[in-house]
Structure formats: C-alpha cells, structure tokens
Design a protein around this nucleic acid. Sequence first.
RNA 1: GGGCCGUUAGCUCAAUUGGCAGAGCAACUGACUCUUAAUCAGUAGGUCGAAGGUUCGACUCCUUCACGGCCCA
Length: 502
Amino acid sequence: MIVSVIKGMGENLEDILTQRRKKIDSFKALGIPPFPNGFKVGIDCRQANDSFGTKSGEELKELGDDFTMAGRIMAIRSFGKTIFTHIQDRTGKIQIYIRKDVIGETGFNNFKEFDIGDFVGVRGGLFRTKTEELTVMVKEITMLSKSIRPLPEKWHGLVDVEARYRQRYLDLIVNPRSKEIFYKRFRIIQLIREFLGAKDFLEVETPMMHPIPGGAAARPFKTFHNALGMDLYLRIAPELYLKRLVVGGMERVFEINRSFRNEGVSTQHNPEFTMLEFYQAYATYLDLMNFTEEMFTAIAKEVLGTLCFDYQGEKIDFTPPWQRMTLKEAVMNYGEVEKGVLDNKESALNYAGKLGLTFKADESLGKIQFKIFEDLVEQHLVQPTFITDYPVEVSPLARKKDDNPELTERFELFIGGKEIANAFSEINNPLDQKERFAAQLQEKEAGDEEAHEMDEDYIQALEYGMPPTAGEGVGIDRLVMLLTNSSSIREVILFPHLKTNK
RNA sequence: GGGCCGUUAGCUCAAUUGGCAGAGCAACUGACUCUUAAUCAGUAGGUCGAAGGUUCGACUCCUUCACGGCCCA
C-alpha cells in the first residue's frame, strides 16, 4: 500500500506537494508509470454525449465495453468498494464509475491513490446510472499524468481576478465560462476570415517592427536591432503596409493580428491588442458601412444565434440598418448644443470649457470638436451607430470630402459606448498625403506625442498610384467583449498585461 | 497620474469596541457498492500582502510600499 508512506504528514501546501511527489515514487515502485505516453483516446466527452446520450441502458450494453477516453479528474466520490469520479477533457465532462469487483483489488487500491487533478485514461463500457447519467463502467484505468499541486476549490472555482489572469491555466480548468469565451473568440475570428475570404480578400502578414511607427495616433514601444544598429518600433497599426499592398495590386487585403500601443492599461485597453484591418479598392467609406453591417450581423447570427443580445445590462440590437449621424449632429443631439456653436472656434472653445476640457492656445477647431465628441457622446452610443464626417485635423490618412475639405470621408462605429471600428476612404493623392503628414509634423513639434510621423517611403508608394480605396480597422478584443458580455478586455485576452512581482 | 476599495489556510470566505485567527471545500485517518457541492466520524493545516509606527496588547488604528479591482484623467 502506498498510504503508509504518507501517514503523519502535516497539511500545509509544502507538505501536500511533498506527499504528492512521494506518490510518484510509490507508483514507480509498483510498476505504474506516473507519466506514460501513447494512450490512445477513442472518443471525447462531447462525442460520447452526442452519440450515446439518448440511448437506453439496453442499447448501451450492446455497444460493448471497449470505449477509451481520457481527461483530468475533477471530482472523486468514494464509497468503500465503489468510486464515482468525473473526468474533464476539452469538450466537457463525463462520469466514471469504478467498482472493486470489476477492476480487481489491485487496480482499485491503486486508484485510491489517484488525486483530483490527475490525468487518467479509461477503458470500459457506457451505461446509465439510477439518475440516468451517461457513465463509463471502468474495466481499466491508467494514470496518464500525475499532478502534484491541488486545484482551486471545486464549487466556487478560482475567483481572485489577479490569480485568474496570472494563472490563466487554472481559470481555464475550473471556470467553464472562461474557456467558453476563448472558444467564442476563435469562432468570431474564424467567421471573419470566412466572410472576407468569401469576398475574395487576401489574408496577409505585414511587419510588426516598423522603422517609422504609423497608421494611428498613438505612442509606440521602441526597440533596437543590434545587428543593423537601428531603432525599431512595434507597430501601432498595419495600415500603411496594407495600403502599400493595394498599390501593388492586391486590391482586397486583410490582416488580423496584434498592434502595440504604449499607453495606459484599463478595462478597455491592453498594450497589445488584436485588430482586423481590411482594404478594398474601388470602395468608399459608404460601402464599408454596409459591409460592416453585413459582416457583424453574420457573426452575431452564427455566434449568438440572434441579432439582439444583452451587454452589461443593455439590450443591443444588431438589426440593420444601423443609425448614421455626423459627428456634429451627434454632439448637438447629446450635448444640446445650438446650431453654429461648433462651427466657430471661439464658441466651441467656450463650450468645451464648460465641459472641463482644456486646450493649448492654438488648438485647431477640428480637434476641439473631436474632443467634445469623445467627452460627451461616445458613452451614449449603445446601439450600433456610425458617426461620420470627422474633421480633417484628426484624420491624417482619410480622404477629404469633395464638397467640404474641412471634413473627411470617415466613420467610426460605436457599440455599447465603445469604439469598435474606424474606417475611411483612403487618401490616394500623394500630394495631399504629404501635406497631411507635414501638418502632423507641426503638431508633433508643438508637443503632440501622438501626432503622425512623416513617412517618405509611403508617400513614394502612393506616387506610383493607388486605386481609390476604402479601409477599416476593427477592434477584435472589443468585438469579442460585446459578443461574450465581458466588461473588461482582460476577460477576452488569455494573458492580459499585468505588472510582475508578487 | 488621482480617488475609492481589496489582499487572512492550496481555494472560497468569516473574525463584534484593539483582547487566545474561524468555517466550507481540498488534504490526511477511518466507515460506506448508484453518488454527483455524496454522507458520517476524526486529524492536521496560518509570516493575517510587505516594512515601519502607536499601544500593556494590532488581522483590526496610523504611515510608507507592492500587487490587484472599480471609477476618473
């Protein structure tokens, strides 16, 4: 017996670890390998339940007793000469029934030394218990991987938020909802790929390390390439590279991958986050609004089975068409601002001051309008809403409107009070783009650390000619938050950024 | 960066006014052949986030720090 080895131990964590390590030696001494390889799994829990969950006891009996399954022991209920346990695999759980008179005294006694958390393989037949639960009657049970650390509590799971993020593997083992979120995340991204693929978009990978950080207004992370002796920046957006590809004739491209922004961490922001960016030649920002409605509704139908869902206590309805309003209209609606106030710098500044917003002396009207919008309106845009006509000063990569060069052919999509997407008709006039970069450079010199850099190489690409094109960026993490009813971005990122040390 | 809150056994949580730190699960011993948060009897398990301070006495009050949460910038 193994038991004798471990009698009299204390019971703090170190003692538990010690006694579990000793079990490994005891198993070895008994000829039971604690970490064997090569166990072949016949069916998983989902297959068992889907294929046999409705069969009668008689029908199950005819299927024989040669099913093999494997998983992690999640519970043990022991009764002297019989033991019930549940094992869990990636697809779910199934109950295992072990009887001394079926597997024999040696096997039974050995199993008594197995612990919650161990991986086991079982061979046996399926049957129904008194309570009709589909269960494996074990003929043979094999240790597949011995655990030595105890799992979190079975009923409450792992609650401590910090521990859930730092030890995400434990969260995934004991909190089914967490695992579901990441399965849904995968499904959402998969659907986006299918959707874009079906519309003849090409998926590409562009550099993560940029000599000039561009494509967004954000501070970058800086790094250094030793061999080349040069500074590099983790990308803040893939935008300028994707548009170079459009110049190269890839008229429909997309990329789903990480961008990095050296900014604060919050429930809405992780330093590295996942964006979808896609570009379509011969489309305009108006086309992309319809496109976005179509894509998002397709995803919601597939993932949620409905277009109406709950997000943090709010009912959100994806049924198109979605509301569209200009930035100025939005401010007037939500801020009860009289017509004309936003059109004049003095009155706009005055109004912004009442909201508690402050600006540097020579701030542009467009930026003031944009800040007022951010402060006043964003949080109210719960139902999907396209906000259009962004000021040219805050949109250095967006095409100017033909009938009003102060505004751009741009929209942002808001859902649940969050910015989910940003899109515009692209600037394909290299002279215009160069002027915009120059204006950004002035902003930068005036102290705006988020102003866009001059990118001569990108201008050169435009000089070869880019077809009229529209492009869009979608925050995948935020989209997943919406569709999984998660209040924090950390719930949808497997390993969110946390400070080290503890 | 600021405000508020939190940090107690492996996990989930208690601890009255500043007066011997407690429970459930997990673990260990024993009983038990259909349980499912199994049950029953027993045992053991603590640097109360860290460092200072006040006090006869600090999980509790004060200060600083670390990490986390929520809100704000």
